[in-house]
Amino acid sequence: MKPFDFQRAGTVSDALAQFAPGSAYLAGGTNLVDHLRAGIREVDGLVDISRLDLTEIAELPGGGLRVGALVKNSDMAAHPLLRERYPALAEAILAGASGQIRNMATTGGNLLQRTRCVYFYDPATPCNKREPGSGCSAIGGFGKYNALFGASEHCVTVHPSDMCVALALLDAVVVAESEAGGRRIPFADFHRLPGDTPHLDTNLRPGELITAVELPAVPVAAQSTYRKARERTSYAFALVSVAAALRTEGENVAEVRLACGGVAHRPWRAHRAEAYLTGKPATAEHFRAAIEAELEEAQSGTENAFKVPLLRNMVVSVLEELRDGRTPQRRAEQGGAA
């Protein structure tokens, strides 16, 4: 870790003023401090924003919520209104990391979580995300976590956040401030696909500071859930995850939302599947056909080929569960003995 300057910001405008090229904002530190110590990233200075007054969860007119950027993940998942209105989001947060990390990690920081690709973490190997132009080691290497959708020859990794999959489901809005003024970034425009610039995870501009995430009113989200498959029962990143919301009318799908994690460089909203399913009978056959429609775009190698049936099964299962109101049963089974 290279020595760096350290400043604490008292207000958002202080923070923006203190930021200089080569600086980084420090909030919960769960990702950034790790990167600095591992030699993945160097900074000239840190602007400590952890004490800014951005820790409120407030109701928005019309039934949405505004979550301050510095709300801890654990506080966000525990918030009664959030749990009631967006169970998939609470579940997604709780499926990530550990109790200690959720007590430290912040909403804004979670949006900026960087990949867990083993080569990104290994400075002795090429990685275009860590060192642009050096190459992608994950192609032909340790590949079981590699993406199914939207990868490029420059980067095949996936986004690691659970929370962001649920935010994609909800069409959240990222609120950011900069010296040039504030802006609101639709969630779909926030994270990027790798293309030939995999070192850029998001469309946030240098020095821009996330101040809040807005959750719009999404009535269908009251019937939503998040399921995560992983190699260890807890405290592991997703192989594949699925966030879904479903409303049926009679036998048919009236409204459906579907987002997938562990499959792309950004949280993957399954628009094709949603479009296929809307208005169709809410049956396993159609749920399967819907995700097959999405999977037409998928590309996999030998090491990550299992993600195709995994994603298909999980989508079908989660939609069936929502249709039948069985989500609590599955969650209890995940934690209990046989």
Partner: peptide, 26 residues
């Protein structure tokens, strides 16, 4: 996972996020 390609030659999942050991929930 020992990446045996030339120029690699070492275990690349070399931390507890890449190399899982059983957690309490297991």
């Amino acid at each position: 996972y020992l990446d045996s390609r030339p120029g690699y030659g070492h275990v690349v999942n070399s931390d507890f996020a890449g190399y899982h050991i059983a957690a309490n929930a297991d």
